[in-house]
Design a protein around this nucleic acid. Structure first.
Length: 198
DNA sequence: CCATAGATCGGCT
DNA sequence: GCCGATCTATGGC
């Protein structure tokens, strides 16, 4: 196949997000997430439904989580541990209170910018955690509620990357509903453009 | 490589 | 007042 065909970019539309977070979370793996001049490929996600003690939406609408109850395809950014921001995409229908946490990725473009935002860290540590990913993409409270389906400079894009060997595991860093297998990840370095033996 | 402690503050009980 | 959808530095193997 030609490079051009493989790299054709299609925006991920709102209909993609308008279904259960349990479906969207694995489907987002391998997609490109662009914020301004930085693009990362999504390699790890987690699903959070309303009927889930570990979800911010579990106890109903509050000022913090209200974006989760809005329409799909909107960015939900929250602040935690007194210093970190984490980014989610709202899924389902309006009123559903669900989202997919973006836990990790790999920088595809904008490496110099990301490097400047993560001073002194190795490239491997740039985006291998939810707060690191948010930092690399400069996502914080100012971006909470931004529509990811309407502006060219922000959103998800599909370059037909084929994702295989998706792992499903319990989620990370939570104390409730620990056992739910709602974390999805794959090894992008092992199946990207630079094949390696093994 | 692995384990652990400390940072630091908004949201909610 | 407590706790968190975490990260980093540090110390040990």
């Amino acid at each position: 196949m030609s490079e051009a065909a493989a790299q054709q970019l299609k925006r991920v539309e709102r209909t993609f997000f308008s279904r259960s977070a349990l479906e969207v979370a694995p489907a987002l793996l391998g997609k490109l997430f662009t914020v301004g001049s930085v693009t990362i490929r999504v390699t790890e996600t987690e699903a959070y439904l309303q009927d889930d003690p570990a979800s911010h939406s579990y106890s109903g609408v509050t000022n913090r989580n209200r974006v989760m109850f809005g329409p799909a395809g909107i960015l939900y950014v929250y602040f935690t541990y007194g210093m970190h921001w984490c980014a989610n995409v709202v899924t389902g229908g309006a009123g559903d209170g669900q989202a997919v946490l973006l836990r990790a990725g790999l920088a595809e473009s904008g490496h110099e910018i990301v490097s400047a935002r993560r001073p002194g860290r190795q490239a491997r540590e740039w985006t291998n955690g939810p707060a690191k990913l948010a930092k690399a993409l400069d996502l914080d409270g100012r971006r909470n509620g931004v529509d990811l389906c309407s502006e060219d400079s922000v959103g998800f894009f599909d370059d037909n990357q084929v994702v295989v060997d998706v792992e499903v595991t319990p989620r990370i860093g939570i104390s409730k509903a620990k056992d739910l297998p709602q974390r999805f990840l794959y090894n992008a370095e092992q199946q990207g453009s630079s094949p390696k033996p093994g």
